[in-house]
Design a protein around this nucleic acid. Structure first.
Lengths: 168, 168
DNA sequence: TCGTGTTTTCAAAAAGTTTTGAAAATTCAA
DNA sequence: TTGAATTTTCAAAACTTTTTGAAAACACGA
């Protein structure tokens, strides 16, 4: 397989994966492109490679920067901005985990805690079923929160550097 | 807080969570409703509770059944079908993990394996960067696959029943 | 300050997804 | 069979999200 073909396929696969994950397709494609490019790209280069408009490029690059997955790079002697993606896939993973935890898990945990105290008799089977469900989901959410938190922290810890060598 | 209010809030929160996860909002809401109801519901009851059309109900219930999150229940003496959701949140989680692995991780791993062998010189920095990226992502994907597989299996194993008692 | 190259914004258009509801199909008791 | 209750289908409508591109804003050297 030729490089150009492989590149196109990788970008499109990463793009549809992103779409299923609530990340928009173009954002994921830009990320894919920057992942496999050795040097930083300018907005124009991204536009050309992916055939998308300037506005679209700008918007999605900014969002990738917000997620912490892409960085602005200043090339000496160049007026234009260049962009590059974090290449260490473990860092990418922890970065995404951190962001999704903040955007998804944390808010639902807040709601679950409020829903714990519904008025009403335990004798009422509807009240009982509701409370039981919320209670169980809440326990599960706390466990998940702990697991994700330690995954996120593992990146920085001593434990990480020793253990991860096995996989890297 | 009153039960009705808490119920509505839970359904709507679970619904928007689902939307972020690539699951459609209504499907997640039906799931939420069935999760907190002690007894199975009929299609009509779901329609009334959530204010959605018959077609919509039918389609999304079927999809939930495909995911293995909801079951058809036959009530003796009733012509209509009733539906109920798995209440054990650990089972729900492994079920979702299994399905998402099948739909998302497995296909991308297939593509990554194909992309491993791109033609071209290692001296070409674009070829090198591409190969390195794919190689690293592939290693990560294999690791993730193992982790998810053992999570899915944990449900059935001896280890599960002993360890999970701590959290339940 | 001006002019040029560059980035950002945002309203409107395009594309994509979900929902509706009525008609068709199915099921089953009589 | 027949017909009433129920479920399923699917084209069109409603809604949501994404993309475009031109205009505005910005940055900076001369």
């Amino acid at each position: 397989m030729k490089l150009a073909e492989a590149k196109a396929q990788f970008i499109q696969t990463w793009g549809s994966l992103g779409a299923q994950w609530g990340i928009n397709r173009t954002m994921a494609q830009i990320h894919a492109l920057l992942l496999i490019m050795p040097d930083p790209l300018s907005a124009d280069e991204i536009m050309q490679e992916l055939n998308i408009s300037r506005g679209n490029t700008n918007m999605n690059v900014r969002e990738l920067i917000n997620w912490g997955l892409v960085e602005r790079v200043l090339v000496p002697g160049e007026r234009r901005e260049f962009f590059t993606a974090e290449k260490d896939i473990w860092k990418v993973a922890t970065c995404i985990a951190k962001e999704r935890k903040k955007r998804e898990l944390d808010p639902i945990m807040k709601v679950l805690n409020q829903l714990q105290d519904v008025e009403g008799e335990q004798k009422d089977k509807y009240v009982k079923a509701f409370k039981d469900s919320i209670h169980n989901i809440n326990k599960f959410a706390h466990q998940t929160d702990k697991t994700i938190s330690s995954f996120i922290k593992s990146e920085e810890s001593w434990f990480y550097s020793t253990l991860m060598k096995i996989f890297k």
